[in-house]
Design a protein around this nucleic acid. Structure first.
Length: 214
DNA sequence: ATACAGATCATCT
DNA sequence: GATGATCTGTATT
């Protein structure tokens, strides 16, 4: 059994954009009877308090109540009649802010991911619905504490330099389209889609490239 | 390469 | 009845 170093609670607390950047490079780990599946987070989106694109912006419902829980809680929602998406809550209870995990670079358990999902290897985890299917994440995991759970948790990964991160506008929303709150590692082949025009690096060294692999 | 319909359900008007 | 933090298969440039 692989050993993982859990990520510090403090790294999940704070502004959703900051946490979204901090989560890049971290591992998402899923443990079932099938074994261990894990991947490096290579793409995230921030959904903040008062954000018109966020499920939290019109208050709690039975669907989204876990988004108003404490940092480190998983918000898993069902959408478009077919798909689940996984978020990490990042603000104190009652605020309603979270980071959507949009793409992973597969690490362990690729065969189990493929059997859970089918399709091409390249499409295993490059999208929020796909990664949930590959890791067998559904609404039964809504509300899971990603800091303490043994079946779904976050673990440390390689440190990603700020200048390897690009911020772009978010995907699939109709409100708040101007906000550049999608964060990705543009050199990594597992992102859900290539850079649109208008993305900007956060750091100061535009020549740098990086992948999430250690 | 892009463009669409269809799946199928929680939530809102 | 419409919309949506999506993905797939099929059709067309």
């Amino acid at each position: 059994m692989a050993s993982f170093v859990r990520i510090a609670a403090a790294s999940l607390e704070g502004d959703a954009c900051a946490v979204a950047c901090r989560l890049l490079g971290a591992r998402l780990v899923r443990v079932t009877e099938q074994g261990v599946r894990s991947g490096f987070i290579v793409e995230t989106e921030a959904y903040r308090q008062g954000d018109p694109a966020s499920h939290s912006c019109r208050g709690t419902t039975p669907r989204n109540h876990s988004m108003f829980e404490r940092p480190g809680i998983a918000y898993v929602y069902f959408t478009y009649g077919n798909h689940f998406c996984l978020n990490v809550v990042c603000e104190p209870p009652g605020i309603g802010a979270a980071v959507l995990l949009r793409a992973l670079e597969p690490e362990l358990g690729k065969a189990e991911m493929a059997s859970a999902r089918g399709g091409r290897e390249r499409d295993l985890t490059n999208g929020p619905g796909r990664l949930c299917q590959a890791l067998s994440i559904d609404r039964t995991l809504d509300g899971t504490d990603l800091l303490s759970s043994d079946e779904l948790f976050l673990a440390a990964g390689p440190v990603i330099p700020q200048d390897a991160i690009v911020a772009t506008t978010r995907i699939g929303i109709s409100q708040g389209q101007d906000r550049p709150w999608r964060f990705l590692l543009p050199a990594n082949p597992w992102v859900s889609r290539p850079l649109p025009q208008g993305g900007g690096r956060l750091g100061t060294n535009p020549g740098t490239t990086a992948t999430a692999s250690p």
